[in-house]
Structures are given as structure tokens and as C-alpha cells.
Amino acid sequence: MQKITALTLAVTCAVTGQAYAESHVDRTDWPSSFSVGTASQGGTFFAYGAGWANLVADELGVSGSGEVTGGPMQNMALVHTGDAQFGMTTMGPAAESLNGTNPIAPGLQMTNACAMFPMYQTPFSVTTLASSGITSIADIPAGARIGFGPAGSTSDTYFPAMMEALGVEFERRNGGWGDLGGQLQDGLLDVIAFAAGVPVPAVSQLEVQTDVNIIEFTAEEQAKIIEAFPVAGFEIDAGTYTTLEAPARSVAMWNFAIANCDLPASFVNAAVDVVMSDNARMVNIHRAATETLPEHWDKNTVMKWHPGAAQWFKDNAGADIPDSMIHGM
């Protein structure tokens, strides 16, 4: 019995300080399970979201998982209504949802979805088969069949308008990233216009199976897009894909995890701590998480913070979040 007791004590002492602290948190109002709204399989949102859902579930001892959805617009709706406890969105779709212009529910201001933690930037990138001969935006022929991702996704919301601004005439196609990658390989699409954290799983898979061109914007095209849309300049690092021999000029938009504003503050605070306190674990889930860092809290200029999340960033990142940007204050 003494050996068993000693072993139990050793195991108990080996847990992290945070896990120990969590055992003293009142969990009576915590949900028994949670889901994270992600996007379609084959995209970065799904891989990243399913990963952090499993990590939080394991660390907190609460059943949780990532769920396939239509992406940022639908996630804002699901989290606002409470059909999903957590989700992931992009700043552009978040702003539209708060303003009541989310196409899923026009007129509904989705103010019950709160900021949780910064994820990463979403670059906008274009991929074609090398056999297409398309090596620039200007090369895309009139009437090209372009896959823009799931309907209502960040890519589908902004990339068609970007292409139009650059003078591209196209046929618009929608679908999951994995499906669109297969259609490109089968010759059913000419181009895929991705808005997803890099490396995009579907592009990495295509590289293994065939030769592709990852097309960058010219400096003039980049400047035109930045002027017209809520994005910033970005470079896709050459090491991101085997196809790239040099950094590729792009534009990007920040992504944030979101939480239903009515969730208990202690639960959200604990979930944020799991994700933000050990970046190496997140990078193991997806390389895009190299930007999932506490100092990027200030990239949210759109949504009100969940009180539990705001408290974590105040306590651990020195965040100066005004009360006016915290839900319920």
C-alpha cells in the first residue's frame, strides 16, 4: 500500500502547475462537452481546429472535438447561437457578422460570438497545375473555372471580388478544399484560389501527386488588393512548399478563435491557457500555429473579448484591453 501511495503521489506531483490549479477551479457550471466549428476537410481550419479541440479536451478532461462546417461565416452563426461552443473565424467575416451582413442570416447581428485567442494569418494564394501553363494572374484565361472553397468561407467571400478587381473573368465553383484539389488534378478546374493558413493540406497533397504552380501577386496587384480589401501584405515563405524556390508575394487576413459569450469565464480561461501556454504543442498540430502567440492579442480590432479570455491575456501577456472591448462590461 505504501508503494502504491508513493507512486500515486509521484504521478500527482508530475502534472503541470496549471493542471494542478485547474483542479481547484469550480467546474459546476462547465459544459460536459464542447465542439469547435472549423471548415471543410483538407483545409487548414479543419486540421488546426480539430487539433486544438483534442488538446483542450485532453488537458481539461472535457469531451470535445472539431466539427466540419462551412467555415468562418457559418462558425460565427454557430457560436453566436450556441450550437457550437467554440469556433474559428477571420476578421473580415467577423466584422460582417457583427454588422448583420453575414449571408447565412442577413440582418442578424452576431454579437454573442466573442474573441478567444489569436490563431494565425490567412494568406490568399493561387494554385494551378504546372501543365496548365498558368504562371501569373494575368495568364488566367477568360472563363477559367476557379474553385473558391466552401460557400461562405473567407476565400469565397473575398477572393472572387479580388479576382474581379484584378480583371480576371471566371466561372465560380465551390466545394471543400480536398474535393477542389481532386477536381484540379482531374482537369475539372483550372485554378484554385485558396484563403487558408499555410501550408494548405490540399496543396501539400497535390505537390506529392503532380507538378503545380503556386502563383504570387505582382507588387502592383498586391497594392491594388490591399487598397480595396481588409488585408495586409504577406509573403509565403519558400520553405512552406517544395514547389516554391523563393518567397511568394501575397496578402493575408488574421484569424481568431471565438467562444460563445455565455460560456463560463473559468472554462474559457482554462481553454485559452491550454492553447496559449505551450506554443510548441500547437506547432506540432499545424505549422501555421507559429503565429499563435500571446503578443498577437492586439490583432483583434473587431470583436468583443470573452471575459475569461480577456483576463488570461491581461494576466499573461500584459494586454491592455479596454472594458469597452470586453463582453458584458
Score class of each variant (00 low, 15 high):
residue 130 A to G: 09
residue 254 W to T: 03
residue 144 A to H: 03
residue 147 G to Y: 02
residue 26 D to G: 09
residue 212 V to Y: 01
residue 323 D to A: 14
residue 172 R to H: 11
residue 24 H to I: 09
residue 37 G to H: 07
residue 63 S to F: 14
residue 272 V to W: 01
residue 308 G to W: 02
residue 225 I to E: 04
residue 170 F to D: 04
residue 35 S to K: 14
residue 12 T to E: 12
residue 207 E to Y: 01
residue 224 K to G: 06
residue 293 L to S: 03
residue 260 N to I: 09
residue 15 V to G: 03
residue 180 L to T: 10
residue 246 A to N: 09
residue 85 Q to C: 07
residue 131 S to M: 11
residue 291 E to Q: 10
residue 302 V to D: 03
residue 294 P to T: 01
residue 182 G to F: 06
residue 164 E to W: 00
residue 185 Q to L: 15
residue 116 M to C: 10
residue 206 L to V: 06
residue 292 T to P: 00
residue 209 Q to K: 15
residue 294 P to R: 02
residue 228 A to T: 02
residue 112 N to R: 15
residue 153 S to Q: 08
residue 126 V to Q: 00
residue 277 S to M: 04
residue 31 P to H: 02
residue 102 N to W: 12
residue 289 A to T: 08
residue 192 I to C: 10
residue 3 K to A: 13
residue 313 F to G: 00
residue 217 F to K: 01
residue 94 A to V: 01
residue 169 E to D: 13
residue 138 A to N: 02
residue 283 V to F: 01
residue 190 D to L: 09
residue 224 K to A: 14
residue 229 F to I: 05
residue 157 T to G: 02
residue 295 E to M: 05
residue 61 G to Q: 06
residue 187 G to P: 01
residue 64 G to N: 05
residue 36 V to L: 14
residue 23 S to A: 11
residue 41 Q to G: 10
residue 189 L to C: 09
residue 156 D to S: 12
residue 96 E to R: 12
residue 207 E to S: 07
residue 284 N to K: 11
residue 105 A to Y: 13
residue 108 L to S: 13
residue 111 T to P: 13
residue 38 T to Q: 08
residue 195 A to Y: 06
residue 222 Q to P: 10
residue 57 A to L: 05
residue 28 T to Y: 04
residue 108 L to D: 12
residue 222 Q to I: 05
residue 219 A to R: 04
residue 81 T to Q: 12
residue 299 K to C: 00
residue 37 G to C: 12
residue 288 A to G: 13
residue 207 E to K: 08
residue 98 L to C: 07
residue 149 G to N: 04
residue 314 K to T: 15
residue 213 N to T: 01
residue 272 V to G: 00
residue 229 F to L: 04
residue 107 G to E: 11
residue 226 I to Q: 11
residue 277 S to Y: 05
residue 263 L to G: 09
residue 150 P to Q: 14
residue 290 T to L: 08
residue 170 F to T: 04
residue 186 D to A: 15
residue 270 A to M: 00
residue 57 A to F: 08
residue 156 D to K: 03
residue 88 M to R: 02
residue 283 V to N: 01
residue 143 G to L: 03
residue 85 Q to M: 11
residue 254 W to D: 03
residue 249 R to Y: 05
residue 228 A to F: 00
residue 309 A to W: 04
residue 194 F to C: 09
residue 190 D to F: 04
residue 222 Q to M: 07
residue 69 T to I: 13
residue 134 I to Y: 07
residue 9 L to R: 14
residue 252 A to G: 08
residue 185 Q to H: 11
residue 71 G to F: 12
residue 102 N to K: 06
residue 38 T to Y: 06
residue 121 Q to K: 11
residue 102 N to R: 09
residue 190 D to A: 10
residue 278 D to E: 07
residue 31 P to T: 02
residue 52 W to G: 06
residue 82 G to P: 09
residue 66 G to E: 12
residue 137 I to Y: 00
residue 185 Q to C: 06
residue 208 V to D: 13
residue 248 A to W: 04
residue 46 F to Y: 15
residue 157 T to Q: 10
